[in-house]
Design a protein around this nucleic acid. Structure first.
Lengths: 198, 198
DNA sequence: TTTTTAATATACCGATTGGTATATTTTAAT
DNA sequence: ATTAAAATATACCAATCGGTATATTAAAAA
């Protein structure tokens, strides 16, 4: 059990993740990471094959840091329709939370990697897909449970909600104004009430 | 009339704008621009004070390239409510159009500049503000003209529509799937029908 | 305690970075 | 055609880039 290196790896990931998230892949240098961690290149390259592998690990960690609190939050109710409200509830507090981690990794890395790092872009796409699949499942469960109207397209509304959330994240972060997040969550709640809820 | 340098400046701007738009500020090098333009550093620095000034000019040009077609499109009707439909109509064709220019500059530069170039970020914010103000004016004109319900908050809906559009732009570009753009425009049309239209 | 191995630090590599000073060329004025 | 001025090309700068080879230190095994 190589405990020392594993701890160092984790430390490097945790420190570098917000840096990659803020600056993007190309604009983050190894020296940014050595400065922030207090370690040297030897420690970095002893634990990661190259900058790219570190960026993948950092992105994975950052997504986990932001998604697992959401998953936990959704456990507060087993009712699908209430889970939907728990989602908007979660995102009402998302701004200060994500800001502290350097922003939303899906937005930041999605934009950053789009014309440069196709491997990283692919990972962003997979995360978005997973989120939408999970959202779709909640809606489908709501239909099965008789909480949500049968004549709606679950995946369509999963994508609509996800798209609105991402728009709000962009606006709130870019304009440094939480209004967009709050009002968009109100709008999504209205959408749930009006179109989904029976 | 220094015609020669003005033409060269314009040429540099037009060529470098999509590069900055795709790569972001820090990840775009002067050599990227000399390669693309076929010019040398002497021509670049003879016409622009530094990389930053060129990036500003490139952003300004890119915004103009994407916004003025929208302005022109809106001239097709003088009715405020029809202008709203013309907006969703415009964005239904936005993906191939913006893709050819390296993406949406508001989204790309907004994310890119957020934690690095505060001057550039400020310019993105001003563009967003201008768009929302104009959208708000259209809604207000609609209220005055009796086309739009009097008991709605014009700026609130301007921001809601803008937020949804930006979310759709992000999703469509990141997932390379125009569905998000199309469906979001349908959703906005529904919103106009249901909440705004009298 | 000694030896072996794992982990980190240091020194260096060629390539590239933004930017500048100067040389050269192109354009315009005389 | 000659001269003056504007515009562009070239050569160079220190600093930094990602990455590697090796030296040193820290941990584990003997």
């Amino acid at each position: 059990m190589t405990t020392k290196a594993a701890l160092t790896s984790q430390h490097i990931i945790e420190i570098s993740a917000p840096i990659f998230n803020k600056n993007g892949y190309a604009a983050t240098s190894i020296s940014d990471i050595t400065k922030a961690t207090g370690l040297t290149k030897g420690a970095i390259y002893g634990n990661f094959k190259n900058k790219e592998e570190l960026a993948y690990a950092a992105f994975k960690y950052m997504v986990k840091s932001l998604i697992s609190p959401l998953s936990n939050h959704l456990r507060e109710s087993s009712s699908p329709i209430k889970k939907l409200y728990l989602i908007t509830d979660f995102y009402r507090n998302y701004y200060p939370f994500s800001k502290q981690l350097g922003g939303c990794p899906i937005l930041n890395i999605g934009v950053d990697a789009n014309h440069s790092n196709s491997e990283l872009l692919q990972r962003v796409r997979e995360v978005i897909q997973r989120i939408q699949d999970q959202l779709c499942s909640i809606i489908e469960n709501g239909i099965d449970a008789g909480e949500i109207s049968t004549n709606i397209n679950a995946m369509q509304y999963a994508k609509r909600i996800d798209t609105m959330i991402q728009g709000a994240i962009f606006m709130t972060h870019t304009l440094n104004d939480n209004y967009y997040m709050e009002d968009t969550m109100n709008l999504i709640d209205e959408l749930i009430d009006l179109k989904l809820k029976i």
